[in-house]
Simulated scan of single mutants.
Amino acid sequence: MDKEKFEKLIFKFHNKELSSEEKVEFESFLSSSDEARKIFHQWNLVYKASQALSINKEIPEIPFSLTEKKTINWRRWLANSAAIITIPLILGFTYLLIDKYKTGPVVYNEVAATNAKVVNISLPDGSKVSLYAGSTLKYPDRFSDEERLVILDGEGTFEVKSNPKNPFYVETTDGTRVKAYGTKFSVRDYDADNTIQVYLERGIVDFNSPRLNHPITMKPDTRLVFNKTDRKYTISNSTPNEYDAYEQGILLFNNKPLEEVVQKLNRVYGVDIVIQDESLKEYRFTATIKDESIYQIMNMLSLSTPQLEWKRQGQKIILTQKLKSKI
């Protein structure tokens, strides 16, 4: 983004001087990124503050006597003083405007990663989110002083800016909450899945579900898998390889059951793969996928699992077990 050019367009926007072409360019800049919207918001505050400080040019020359009996030209005094008072006052008014906005209604943003491997998001407090395929994230335009709450439907990695006085919460659609203060962790909770998974890379988080009687505290390099049906959970040692790869646009499957592999492929590639034989769901699959097409991946699956074959059926891809040849 050409920041200098964007700021010139913002200036023209406030002065209603944008041409038709510049208006299109301005709107393109504004919708391009969170950074662009933040720049516009900052300049908008300064503009409003400067408007509040605007002085009527028709102020008459008012003689004003001091104890020394000297007469002051009031208009000239204002003009000479403007350079000294304008900047501090604009900053002061900007602060007041920002403070005023803090008491206004909170606006929620919603970002969706539809058939995209990763969407990167910057939150108002400086925390970072990597949102994965088939997921949505809702977050406010500003956080409260009591908590920083975002709502996740799907899967994402969170790198939370430390603030011991203001905990950070990731809440999923079923009311499960992961609480952190300053850490890096990943949460996976799709409605279609029977489990909720949390991987903690560094720091400490608390996992709490409406289905539990008490929160579970996790330590670094561990993975929690919580079963939504029987309310049982396991915590095991783990490594960040899978999510590190995912953030770089790489799918890494390390001895994963075929059912989980298919769920991931459906979300990332926007396809409909159906496992027709239940016996295939527990077959394990190990692979690293970056630029392969979905059909290349299907061939990889059938080569690594001799009992499996696949075929296209309309808009679906059907996985079946090979029939045993008759002797």
Rank of each mutant, 00 (worst) to 15 (best):
D2F: 06
K5D: 01
E7K: 15
K16P: 00
K16H: 10
K16L: 08
L18W: 01
K23W: 06
K23T: 14
V24M: 03
V24D: 03
V24G: 03
E27H: 11
S28M: 03
S32W: 03
A36K: 06
Y47L: 02
A49Y: 04
S50C: 04
S50M: 12
L53I: 03
S54M: 08
S54V: 12
K57T: 06
E61N: 15
K69C: 05
K69M: 05
W77V: 00
L78S: 00
A79W: 05
N80T: 02
A82Q: 10
I87M: 09
L91E: 02
T94E: 05
L97T: 02
L97M: 07
K100W: 07
G104S: 15
E110V: 15
A112T: 14
T114C: 02
N115Q: 15
V118Y: 01
G126M: 02
K128I: 13
G134S: 12
L137P: 02
D141K: 12
D145S: 09
E146W: 01
R148G: 06
L152I: 00
V160K: 07
K161S: 11
P164V: 15
K165A: 03
K165E: 08
P167S: 09
P167Q: 12
T172D: 04
T173Y: 08
D174S: 13
K179W: 06
K179V: 01
Y181F: 12
G182M: 08
T183V: 04
V187M: 06
D189F: 02
Y190S: 11
Y190D: 01
T195Q: 14
I196Q: 01
S209K: 04
P215M: 10
D221K: 13
V225Y: 01
K228F: 10
D230L: 06
T239W: 01
E247N: 11
I250L: 11
L252H: 09
N255R: 11
P257N: 12
E260T: 10
Q276I: 07
S279G: 04
K281H: 00
D291C: 00
S293C: 08
Y295V: 14
Q296M: 04
N299W: 05
L301F: 11
P306M: 09
Q307Y: 03
L308P: 02
L308T: 03
W310S: 07
K311D: 10
T320L: 14
Q321F: 00
K322Q: 13
